[in-house]
Amino acid sequence: MDPLRSAAAGDWLKPRIDIQWHDMHAVVPRGFPAYARIFHPAWRDHPEATKTWHGHELPARGAVQGQEVGWSDVALAFGKHMHALTQFGRLTGPEIPRLGPVDAAGWRYGSPELGNLNPEKLAAAAVHLCAHTSTPNQGVTGIWEGYGGLTSSSGYVELTFVDDGVQPDYGGGSEAPNAEPGTGLLPAEVVNGERLQLPGRSYFLFDTAPRIYLEPGWLHEAPWHHSPDSPQSPNLLWPADKSWVLVSEIDFDSTIVGGSWDLISALAQDPAIEALAIQEGADLTWDADVHNRPAQ
């Protein structure tokens, strides 16, 4: 998991990323035969005992059972339609004050994590990723530059957005004032070195074999997160033969994989991974979920 001193390993991605935001290809490379969307797990909890507040049943403090839950289960609970372009905010029902979305059975729901595929789902996906590359022992991981504490003890990156649909810099920015490069997780020579510059996003690159994500040992070795208890999955991952690419965009609640039809089919059929095939050019914005659009 050594940092790459040169960012040239990621140059192949640059012509495949759109400069204008039309669809997912502002962050996901074009040109693969097929794509899959891996849905990050949501969560829900349920009170064992309740009290009443303004007519609503509230969980009693300390008396909550929590569990990870898939999007299909959320859709079922709220009578919604699960499909490849589903947006999580359209799956749940109206929010109850101080609680959030609650289904008819009393389960309260929380949103999936953005930009991070949990280690169990990543390991399950890695089984198929490694089976569909000739170079499972060689690859590259990209980590977004803006995570707190990565470049310095007080470092961060400001995100900027524009409204006209042309976004030459919809991510990226500058570090916190008075930040000292190298006082964070990455040494100064890495922080001051090359980064992969894609439209609106910059990444530190690491020499990582895709197969390392099959086992939990990577949680203790990755130089880009603070501890195994708060891991960060790759924002970008590809093998040396470039047969596929995995993208966990920082603002997406799902991970996109581009690759062969066989790979995408394997991901979509694995019950350990909630994934569906999507088309090139898929729109993953919130209003693309027409099947669950609220009635006017």
Rank of each mutant, 00 (worst) to 15 (best):
G146M: 03
S233H: 04
F39W: 12
N137V: 06
K80L: 02
A188S: 14
Q65W: 00
V69R: 00
I212V: 14
A266C: 12
S154T: 15
G148H: 07
S265L: 11
A131P: 03
T285S: 15
D229S: 14
H54Q: 14
P294Q: 05
Q197I: 00
Q197S: 12
L122F: 05
D23G: 03
W286G: 02
V27N: 07
S111T: 11
K14V: 08
L219T: 07
P112L: 02
D2Q: 11
R293K: 11
F32N: 09
L150H: 04
W144R: 03
T50E: 03
D163A: 15
R195Y: 08
V74S: 01
T208N: 15
I143N: 02
V127L: 14
I273L: 13
G110D: 10
S265D: 15
A84I: 04
A105R: 10
E68T: 14
I278P: 05
L85M: 03
V27H: 08
L91D: 03
G110K: 11
L117T: 07
C130V: 12
E180N: 10
K242Q: 14
L122D: 13
P3C: 11
A34M: 04
L185W: 03
P210V: 09
G200I: 08
V127Q: 15
I96F: 07
D270C: 01
R30H: 09
I256P: 03
L263F: 00
P97N: 06
Q279P: 02
S6D: 13
P101G: 06
F161M: 12
L276T: 04
E68Q: 13
T86A: 13
A104I: 08
Q167V: 13
R108N: 15
G200A: 12
T50P: 00
F39Q: 02
G200Y: 08
E48M: 14
A124L: 05
L237R: 08
P216S: 13
V257M: 10
P228I: 05
A49L: 04
P168I: 10
G171T: 01
D229M: 09
S260M: 06
G148R: 06
L205V: 06
A272F: 06
C130D: 12
L185G: 03
L205T: 06
Q197F: 00
V190A: 14
F206M: 00
D241Q: 15
L58E: 02
L186M: 12
L85F: 02
I278F: 08
T160I: 12
